[in-house]
Design a protein around this nucleic acid. Structure first.
Lengths: 219, 219
DNA sequence: GCTACATTCAATTTATCGCTTGAATGTTAT
DNA sequence: ATAACATTCAAGCGATAAATTGAATGTAGC
């Protein structure tokens, strides 16, 4: 085993692969794609102990997937840059295209996925310009505040039922949330359709929109 | 830890990550990106035993990164599809942008990397159309035969010195090989420049060209 | 059917990973 | 300074992965 440049590089790249190789870390990356978070806040969201979360975060940092900065008592973690979102997208695409089990899960839990005909970013931009649609962000308010689509209104899924009146102006609703596998927007679309409001899903979530360089309203 | 759809999906995606998490497997993917290979041929190229190679290949197959087909006595493996090349490219980009160690290795071993100003596919296509350049494939003949850039000539690096006359027609040479970290084209460009032949590197290798959907001459 | 050969499987050893627990570090606020 | 708190470190245990070896499977060709 010579220690040529290729071996050295592939060892480094393999470390990135290993960092992607745990479901909890992928979930952490999804959350960090919404906004930066402290260790404890993140631990709570993914249901792990603080110490365990801290270790996973350091694993991710060593692999160059996240970065951290200190603010007072807190250490805030976020994605290293947009290339991480691109990498996750590529990972998901390989899974969707080549793993039968992924296909099975998608069909089982996201059966609407096929019938819902998700909206592309291009279509959303065009129809927003024409004033034909309402863009709905169903994530929690703090994530919305950290950055959202231009003109989007924020109704967390938990409040959708009581606030559905805000959307009943006849325009089609396009809902989005954290990413392609985030259930929030699926459920929002289902709930809206039940109430007779035309609704579709944006095909991706906020991180993908940002990584594509599309316009955002940021804090 | 509920077993909701997200957990199920992230477990699958994490398996892809783990499959990327070993330098030997990354090297195998680079080779399989050139052409399909049997187990023994691949084992020889990466310097592993046949049994070990077989196990790695099955790991890669379970993760949806490679596929196999039987031909006579041989089982031929190849990349599952172009999305795998895209994934590898995204992995490399994260490493280049966020890992200091990768940067250090690249500067150390590929010091020409900055001064060489690699050629983009677009530029290559345009200058080929104008007849201004010679496209040089420095990979082994069998890989060349399995697919190469339109109009490219094949001179393996080992034969470059003796066959350099074939390139001395005054046109600039654009060399490429297996991928962004393949040393063959770096060395070819250095050798040609030493002999006064203007030469540059294509920024990526054959698999990336193919994944971009650009034209190929295939077997 | 039998032999040759490519590939895969099974069993083993060694190393690494993931999680827990409890202590240590470093920053803020009094 | 000291107390409070967020985060990280260190040690330990069970589980998983990598490489080696030798046996088993499956296909081709006679």
């Amino acid at each position: 085993m010579s220690t040529g440049p290729k071996q050295a590089l592939y060892s480094e790249f393999a470390a990135i692969g290993r960092a992607l190789g745990h479901p909890h870390r992928l979930e952490m990356l999804e959350h960090l794609g919404q906004r930066e978070r402290g260790v404890e806040a993140l631990a709570q969201r993914v249901g792990l102990t603080v110490a365990n979360t801290s270790q996973h975060l350091q694993h991710l940092r060593r692999a160059g997937l996240v970065k951290s900065r200190r603010q007072g008592k807190f250490v805030l973690y976020s994605l290293a840059d947009e290339s991480v979102t691109t990498l996750l997208g590529a990972l998901f695409q390989v899974g969707e295209r080549n793993l039968a089990e992924v296909d099975r899960v998608l069909r089982g839990y996201f059966s609407e996925r096929d019938s819902m005909e998700p909206v592309t970013p291009e279509e959303l931009l065009e129809r927003t310009r024409e004033g034909l649609v309402t863009v709905l962000d169903v994530r929690p308010p703090d994530e919305f505040a950290a950055g959202h689509l231009p003109g989007a209104i924020n109704i967390p899924l938990s409040e959708l039922e009581e606030r559905v009146g805000e959307l009943a102006d006849g325009r089609e609703v396009i809902a989005y949330c954290r990413g392609p596998y985030c259930v929030l927007s699926f459920e929002a679309v289902a709930a809206l359709r039940e109430r007779g409001i035309p609704a579709r899903r944006l095909e991706d979530g906020l991180p993908e929109w940002r990584a594509a360089g599309l316009p955002l309203e940021e804090a």
